[in-house]
Design a protein around this nucleic acid. Structure first.
Lengths: 305, 305
DNA sequence: CAGCATTATTCCACTTTTTGGAATAATATA
DNA sequence: TATATTATTCCAAAAAGTGGAATAATGCTG
């Protein structure tokens, strides 16, 4: 017996003062209505109605119970509406994670704009240079750079980015400019362990893939530190293009071995929720994807920029 | 699917952060738990949990819904307890009906005492000299005098009473004292139409039953009026012994044809409720039966009084 | 008062739903 | 990497639910 349904039937019988009338109203057969009310009475251990074939009246217990039943049915309906509503409309707190630089450069600006659009929303960010488990840390959306490993997440591609080598002009004047991967053996390598701890650097020349094992002079666990060391002329670093874009632009860093750059890697927005995505996540993903796709540094047309 | 049961399962999964743990706790199988939550999600149109085989976390919608679900389940439990409680414990309003004189002489005194015993109770009485339908008029307990006609009512016998003939001393001095039913033809008859409109008066002499059709000089629809006319010497009346007991006792009325009195008729307390009798009805019936049985005018030992 | 239409209930055969064991894929942990 | 545990799906069996037919009861009407 569905108690919820039985409560509905009970209330209707009381309102229409008859089992047959309630059955007609609810499109059920009279025996079913009779049985449901009877089962409800049995489960409660009380008589809800005093009945003859011609009249049906609530007992005192029944009178008491119908008031509660009506309220509970209304509360349940309201609760369901509210739960569905919180899925249907962007409300609550949106939590987003990205690497520090990406967060600073791309997420923070667009998040401000997004929150202006949805005043009922608040936001929480986690910018760290490590892999974050969305579920464990209770986060809604993450930015993933590179080929996706976690297939249980929903992913939307929003751009692509290259890995580039760079050094300061002064370093290059002192040590010369490497032309091939093998030339790197004669240079000081600044390795980032932030997202990819591997010392295997990948290159591509024409159609040929080349992997070179580098011997880092120094390994740093944040990308900011890698950049800072390169600016000071300590060696050659490798990061994503957007991460050093400002320094390339103002000449403080120069790219190296541009003809050996590997294929760009994709950027995705990922979220854990499946087919029933909450409104806030859906709204943010839609908004962010559109913005990032049109960004000159990482957007889909980035290779032509 | 029992919606409330599913709510309970949902709450337990969330609290124990796992489907298997909830299944163990609720003595159910894991597939059943999985299915229940899934069916609940389908019916709501939202995702309640984000889950992997190793972790189960509430979505925002789920977080919102669990608060409501907890409250609704608690309300339902309280409503069931309250309904059962109002059956188990004498509370609410007790409604009693009796004929005017019976009510005044017997019910009112004992009702006062009964209410002193159960302070949570209130009472409502309907004293009328007509047959009352308990169900239609929403009454709990009735007093029935005579052989029972309505077999759907529960009845408890609490006494018996005679029909007696009476007249004032002055009437009897002026008109003589009738000795047989035939003698009544020469007398003024005061008929009561309150409960039995028949003009057929029944007598019993030894083992012989006699029915006499009387020609009323006057018919009154309340028993009080019959008594008043008799007191004023207008004729011979017929009522129940308790109804005229005070006047017989102080000599203002005298009985007539005592040897032709018909057998006493029973008095019952009746109520409509069946096997699950509310506490107030049960308490009152028990109390009233005991009191009425020991009353000297109508109790079980009345014939020896 | 008798006849009648309507009602609540019970019975029974059939249909639908629910259940848990077995199997499988996924996932934290050691 | 192996393993124990978990959530889920499948499937056959058990349980529950359903409505038509039958029956007794009961207000209403003539």
């Amino acid at each position: 017996m569905d108690r919820f349904h039985a409560l509905n039937v009970f209330v209707k019988v009381a309102e229409l003062k008859g089992f047959a009338a309630a059955a007609r109203h609810l499109n059920m057969s009279p025996p079913t209505v009779t049985r449901m009310v009877s089962m409800l009475e049995d489960s409660l251990g009380i008589r809800l109605f005093v009945r003859t074939t011609r009249s049906v009246m609530l007992t005192d217990s029944g009178q008491r119970f119908i008031e509660d039943a009506r309220r509970i049915l209304a509360d349940l309906e309201e609760a369901e509406r509210a739960a569905f509503g919180s899925y249907a409309e962007p409300t609550g707190e949106l939590s987003v994670t990205a690497s520090v630089l990406f967060g600073r450069m791309f997420i923070t600006p667009l998040l401000g704009e997004f929150l202006d659009l949805y005043p009922k929303l608040s936001a929480r960010t986690l910018y760290v240079d490590r892999v974050v488990n969305l579920i464990d840390e209770g986060l809604d959306v993450g930015i993933r750079i590179g080929n996706l490993a976690d297939s249980s997440l929903m992913a939307v591609r929003c751009g692509a980015v290259n890995q580039i080598l760079f050094a300061s002009p002064s370093y290059l004047e002192s040590h010369g400019k490497p032309e091939t991967p093998d030339d790197l053996s004669c240079h000081a390598i600044i390795n980032s362990t932030a997202l990819n701890a591997s010392a295997q650097w990948h290159f591509q020349s024409g159609r040929k893939s080349i992997t070179k094992r580098v011997n880092p002079r120094i390994s740093m666990n944040t990308n900011d530190a890698v950049i800072e060391l390169a600016l000071q002329g300590h060696g050659i670093g490798r990061l994503l293009s957007y991460q050093v874009a400002p320094y390339i632009a103002d000449g403080r860093l120069k790219t190296v071995m541009k003809s050996y750059e590997p294929p760009e890697v994709p950027i995705h927005l990922v979220h854990q929720e499946g087919r029933t995505v909450s409104a806030k996540v859906r709204a943010f993903v839609d908004f962010a994807v559109e913005r990032l796709k049109s960004d000159s540094l990482i957007g889909q047309n980035q290779t032509q920029a």
